[in-house]
Simulated scan of single mutants.
Amino acid sequence: MSASGVDAFLEMQAAERGAALNTIRAYTRDLADMDAALHARGMTPLTAGESDLRDYLSGLARQGLAARTQARRLSCLKQYFLFLAREGMRPDNPAALLEAPRLDAPLPRFLSEPEVTELLAACVPEPDATPARGRRLMVAKAALEMLYASGLRISELLSLPRRAVDAAPGMMLVRGKGGRERMVPMSARARAAARALMALDAGRESPYLFPGRSARQPMTRQGFDRILHDVALRAGLDPQRLSPHVLRHSFATHLLAHGADLRALQVLLGHADIATTQIYTHVMLDRLRDAVAQHHPLAQQHD
C-alpha cells in the first residue's frame, strides 16, 4: 500500500501527532480494508472518487458494523485523504463531504460518592493479612486514591515514575495522550498512600511507582484489573460496574456536582477538545435548574 501513501501517512501520525501504537494498528487495518474494497472495484485510493467511498461506507453498514466502528473508519479515511491532498498525491479530497452515522452518546458510568468511600475503605488489610496480601491492598489504596483525586487515565497512572510523587506540593506532572504533559492535583491522602507504597517497595529498586512482576517494567493493565476486581468484591460492589475509566468519570462527575468549571475540568482531564468534556454536563442539569429557580427574577412569580 506504500504506493498510495499509506506508509507516509502512518509515519506522520506517529511522528507528528504522537499517535499511540494501538491507533496506528487500527489505522493500518482500516486502510487495508478500504484498499481491498477499492481494488475489487478496479480502483485505488489515488483514483477513487467520493461516490466510491460512499459505496464503501455503505457496505460497512450492510456488514452490520456498529455505528461507532463506522465513524472510526470514516475518521481514518478523512485524515488519510486530507494527507494525500496536502502532499500533492491527489488533486482533491474525496472524503471531505462524507458524514459519519449518528451516534447516541452514552452517559458516562460513575460511582456515587458513598460507593467511592466504601471502595477506599475496602483497601485496608485485615490484621492477619499476609505480607503479599497487605502489599496488594496497599497498591490498590494508592492507585484508587490517585485515580479518584486526579482523574488520571490508567495508562497515565501505571506509567508514573516514582519521582512524580516528589513534584511540587499538591501537584503532579503527568504525560498523557500524544506525549502532552499537564499538571494535575494530588491530594494529601493520595500522596500519603503513594509514599507508603514507595517505602514498602524501596527494596525493589524500580523506576516506576507501580512496578510489575519485573521491577524494570510497570504493572500491566491486566494485573491492575485483577486487583480492582478483588477490591470491588471486598467493598460489596459489582466488579462489572468498576473500571479505571469509571473512576475517572467519577472524579469528573463529582467535581462538576460540587461546582467545578467545565473548562477547568477539561484541563484536569487532559482533553484536547472541550466537546469531549461536555459529556459530563448531564450532572450539571439539576444545579442549573436550581440556579434558575433561586435567582431568576421571574422564577418566584405565579400566574
Results as ranks from 00 to 15, higher is better:
residue 204 R to E: 09
residue 5 G to S: 05
residue 27 Y to H: 00
residue 99 E to G: 04
residue 89 M to P: 07
residue 43 M to K: 15
residue 272 A to L: 12
residue 42 G to D: 12
residue 164 A to W: 04
residue 179 G to M: 10
residue 280 Y to D: 06
residue 189 R to Y: 12
residue 18 G to T: 06
residue 165 V to F: 04
residue 258 H to E: 12
residue 109 R to P: 02
residue 223 G to W: 11
residue 39 H to D: 13
residue 202 A to D: 01
residue 80 Y to L: 07
residue 245 H to P: 07
residue 113 E to N: 12
residue 239 P to Y: 06
residue 174 V to D: 01
residue 60 L to G: 05
residue 1 M to Q: 02
residue 69 T to N: 09
residue 9 F to T: 00
residue 70 Q to N: 03
residue 51 S to Q: 15
residue 250 S to K: 06
residue 250 S to H: 00
residue 107 L to P: 06
residue 49 G to C: 12
residue 146 M to R: 10
residue 32 A to Y: 04
residue 110 F to I: 13
residue 60 L to V: 06
residue 211 P to Q: 12
residue 18 G to V: 02
residue 41 R to W: 00
residue 141 K to H: 13
residue 170 G to K: 01
residue 182 R to D: 09
residue 57 L to S: 00
residue 287 R to A: 12
residue 132 A to I: 11
residue 252 A to E: 08
residue 195 R to Y: 03
residue 165 V to E: 05
residue 124 V to P: 04
residue 60 L to K: 04
residue 41 R to H: 02
residue 51 S to C: 14
residue 152 L to W: 00
residue 203 G to W: 05
residue 224 F to Y: 10
residue 163 R to P: 01
residue 54 R to C: 01
residue 163 R to L: 13
residue 43 M to W: 07
residue 81 F to Q: 02
residue 206 S to A: 03
residue 107 L to M: 12
residue 53 L to G: 00
residue 261 D to K: 09
residue 30 D to F: 03
residue 187 S to V: 10
residue 51 S to G: 14
residue 4 S to E: 15
residue 300 Q to I: 08
residue 58 S to I: 05
residue 66 A to E: 07
residue 220 T to P: 07
